[in-house]
Structure formats: C-alpha cells, structure tokens
C-alpha cells in the first residue's frame, strides 16, 4: 500500500467536514465539521512528515492542535452566549446582518 492513501483519506475527511459546515445548521455540529477539517490536515501533515523523513510536519500538526483547542474554547463560549440570549443553536437564526 502506498503512503498516498493516507493523503486521500485526509482529502475525503476534509471534504466531508467542509460539506458538514455547508449543510448542517446546528452550530455545534458545524463546529465539529471544522474540527474534522483540522484533523484531516493534521493527518496530511503527519503523512508528509513520514514521506519526507522530517519531524517538522508533526510539529506543525502539534501547533494546529493547540490552536484548535484555543479555538474550541472561544467558539463554544460564543455558542453558549448566543444560546443564552436567543434560545437557539442554529446558525440560520443568527442573521441580523442581513437586516
């Protein structure tokens, strides 16, 4: 089996995550889609590290994880705040900008 298969898996996961963001309305699920996309890139990073024999790829994946963790904290806090005021976790309900 070629190592490229990992990359194809990463591409598939990334696409599924992106589609989730476009199609789901629950803010938490949308958020999970984003996490999925981040993880897919991480897989690609790790695979490239293996292909090139260079650990820097893993370091970058590590950074991505940390940033993702920080992002989750803020993002979920925003979702909670919105839910408190609007009693809804649907991203479609947050469209004040259109008016």
């Amino acid at each position: 089996m070629a190592v490229t298969n990992y990359l194809i898996l990463a591409a598939i996961l990334f696409s599924i995550g992106a589609t989730t963001v476009l199609l789901r309305r629950n803010a938490i699920i949308v958020f999970m889609g984003i996490e999925l996309m981040l993880n897919a890139t991480n897989l690609a990073f790790v695979t490239f590290a293996r292909i090139h024999g260079d650990l820097t790829g893993q370091v970058l994946a590590f950074f991505v994880m940390v940033v993702a963790a920080a992002e989750v904290v803020v993002g979920l806090a925003i979702i909670v705040t919105i839910f408190r005021t609007r009693r809804s976790a649907s991203v479609d309900d947050v469209n004040l900008l259109s008016r």
């Binding site: 992106a18 476009l22 199609l23 991203v91 479609d92 947050v94 469209n95 004040l96 900008l97 259109s98």
Partner: peptide, 14 residues
C-alpha cells in the same frame, strides 16, 4: 446577495 446566513458565506468562500 447579502442574506446574513453564515452558511451562504461559507459556501461562497469554499
């Protein structure tokens, strides 16, 4: 085009 739906904007950027 500005309908305020974040998913539309996401679709546009994708």
């Amino acid at each position: 085009a500005q309908n305020g739906f974040v998913r539309t904007y996401a679709a546009t950027s994708l």
